[in-house]
Design a protein around this nucleic acid. Structure first.
Ligand SMILES: [Zn+2]
Ligand SMILES: [Zn+2]
Length: 447
DNA sequence: CTCTCCGGTCAT
DNA sequence: ATGACCGGAGAG
């Protein structure tokens, strides 16, 4: 029951607030939307459109409170230091509400009842995610699978805490853990010893904003990417700026991220109008969510006319999701080539871990397909497009490498949608769609 | 006041 | 462990 559908500030009409004013210098590889701050990056992606269309109205990131001030000031100053706020710069913060995820559906913004009161899955902020990981990881019951059973062979869910940690934080918070969704009988629980960070919450707070996502993603040539088209492997290499704990030396993570979906060129406003009437627009959560506490069901909310989603069919992008590195591309490519075969194989042959009893060891002794980082690389930025670097230069805005994005996708969290939207409606900030068929493909679980 | 949405809590 | 709720913080 809604009928409220008040014109959300974002859709309404308030002139697009010019992007978040970054107080810190933006790395050249980071495109800026705002006023002609056209970063003169060499790869000069077609950002005109972007600048014309701010990612999200400032009103959208209300709770973010001055995203421009990366200083921990506001975040911490808040008496309720326990409440993490939006960073305002990560992909999530930049994204518009998809309008189709369960939370958007719930939001009054889209005519929902507003009972769930959660942010759009697409808009999940990485900072918040991290805070949560830091909080929960210590008590998280991590397990390592046998890597032999069927479950272990399945691809990671990509939405559980472990997967998210893996994807965004290179398992720093829950090292060695296997996808929480996997139900391996031979799984062994491991003590989660969050590396890298002290157990002192006070520390997090301070570090959170500064948390650099100094992680490096290997670069995979487009060709390679295409060759791996059957599966997505977001191979990442860990690289720590600060002294990494022994167990976290370096690791290579292979993930089989869900297939990318093609963005659905439409703005929230449009979405509101269309207000899908999808049969299974349960979207986002792949795992059967528990039943709603009360009668408010998703369906009930969908009382809007069965508008069509428009002609844009949801396609599935099969390119490998890999984010490109700027400089180490070459060497990486070489490396990748060598590993290419291996990787393809891993797709169906989850590497048998040498020893799973100790996660520490697990981390050190990377599985066969593990690619060890060539050498400490100076955090290239721009590849972790979805990683906010609170307080630091954040290559999370619009990576200059739009071009790359268009060709080979990087991460489900960095929807290829951007490029497409450019072409379709010039709005690169429209979040990926949540077609039921893509259910659980590109999401972040509830935070 | 309006609005977004974090985080705690409870049900599953 | 995870999702549904919902109180309420905090920004506009
Ligand atoms: Zn959404
Ligand atoms: Zn954010």
């Amino acid at each position: 029951m809604n009928m409220m559908h008040m014109g959300a500030p974002m859709n309404g009409g308030p002139p697009p607030p010019q992007m978040l004013q970054m107080h810190h210098p933006l790395p050249h590889h980071v495109a800026v939307f705002a006023h002609g701050s056209s970063s003169q990056n060499s790869q000069a992606p077609p950002l005109q459109a972007a600048s014309a269309t701010p990612p999200v109205p400032s009103s959208m990131n209300r709770s973010q409170s001055r995203a421009s001030c990366p200083q921990s000031t506001r975040e911490m100053s808040s008496h309720r230091s326990t409440t993490s706020r939006r960073c305002g710069v990560c992909r999530g913060c930049q994204c518009k509400p998809c309008g189709q995820c369960t939370y958007c559906q719930d939001s009054p913004q889209f005519g929902g009842p507003g009972v769930k009161k959660q942010s759009c899955i697409e808009r999940r902020c990485l900072r918040v995610l991290e805070n949560r990981l830091q909080r929960d990881a210590p008590t998280f019951k991590a397990r390592v699978g046998c890597n032999a059973c069927e479950d272990c062979r399945m691809q990671d869910c990509q939405i559980c805490l472990v997967c998210l940690d893996k994807r965004f934080f290179e398992n720093r918070h829950i090292p060695g853990a296997m996808c929480a969704k996997k139900r391996c009988n031979n799984a062994q629980s491991i003590e989660c010893v969050p590396s890298l960070m002290s157990q002192n919450p006070a520390d997090f707070v301070q570090r959170a904003p500064k948390r650099s996502y100094e992680l490096i993603n290997p670069v995979i040539s487009q060709q390679q990417q295409q060759q791996q088209s059957q599966m997505h492997f977001d191979v990442k290499r860990v690289q720590y700026m600060t002294g990494p704990p022994p167990q976290m030396m370096q690791q290579m993570q292979m993930q089989a991220p869900p297939q990318q979906q093609i963005p659905q060129p439409q703005t929230p406003q449009q979405q509101v109008q269309q207000h899908q009437q999808r049969p299974n627009s349960n979207s986002s959560h792949s795992q059967g969510p528990s039943p709603p506490r009360n009668g408010v069901s998703q369906q009930q909310q969908q009382q809007t006319p069965p508008q069509q989603q428009n002609g844009v069919a949801h396609q599935i992008k099969t390119d490998v999701n890999v984010e490109n590195l700027e400089q180490h591309q070459q060497q990486q490519q070489q490396q990748q080539q060598q590993l290419q075969q291996q990787q393809q194989r891993m797709i169906f042959q989850p590497a048998p871990y040498p020893d799973l009893s100790v996660h520490a060891r697990l981390m050190v002794q990377a599985p066969p397909q593990v690619i060890t980082a060539p050498a400490p690389i100076p955090l290239p930025q721009g590849q972790m497009t979805h990683m906010p670097q609170h307080g630091l230069d954040i290559p999370y805005l619009i990576p200059t490498s739009f071009v790359q994005a268009v060709q080979g996708q990087a991460d489900p969290f960095y929807p290829s949608k951007f490029e497409l939207d450019f072409e379709h409606n010039g709005d690169p900030f429209v979040p990926p769609s949540y077609a039921q068929d893509m259910k659980g493909q590109v999401v972040l679980q509830q935070l």
